[in-house]
Amino acid sequence: MDFIKVAVFAACLLPTARLVWRFATDGLGANPIEYITRATGWWTLAFLAITLAVTPARRWLAMPWLLRLRRMLGLFAFFHACQHFTTYIWLDQFFDWPGVLADIAKRPFVTVGFAAFVLLVPLAVTSTNAMVRRLGARRWQQLHRLVYGIGVLGVVHFWWLVKKDVTEPLIFAVVIGMLLASRLLPHRSVPPQRQASVGSAAD
């Protein structure tokens, strides 16, 4: 199991490694800042989708061990979101704080993207075992349901920024929409033997 964790951790670093490689070899194209912004944003959404896929995969594909990877995957979504946000603040806006605030206030796609990032912060902060214990499992779980809204905000952010070709935002919308919808499907939340005894009592 630990081998899997290490392998997944390494794989999660590949998008960042690719950017560093392209930077070092002049492979970021004519507009490097746009390239980095696009790539880090895309991978944030991808990691949100992957993280949201853990629970359905666990339930429907009988892969309970996936749960062990969920925290790491979620933190990698946050990791890429931090890169995305930093790229925007530093490389794109170069710490022009009035400009940043105006963007957040006036540009709906920036507003929702910023909201999604801010909402990710408490989830990252409360990702440790100690925090789960402090909050209690029930409250912790309630808090972490924020990720559903974050996924939606992320897709809206992408959708609103493209000029015309919404193919990619649409793919993310379908994937994340299906992952959220799958949570509404009935599944076995009660232990099987209790279900069976309820059934026999009705006879």
Binding site: N31, E34, F109, W160
Partner: peptide, 11 residues
């Protein structure tokens, strides 16, 4: 959806 006040000159 975005400002036109500034631009990034390529390069």
């Amino acid at each position: 959806r975005w400002s036109q006040a500034r631009e990034r000159r390529i390069g």
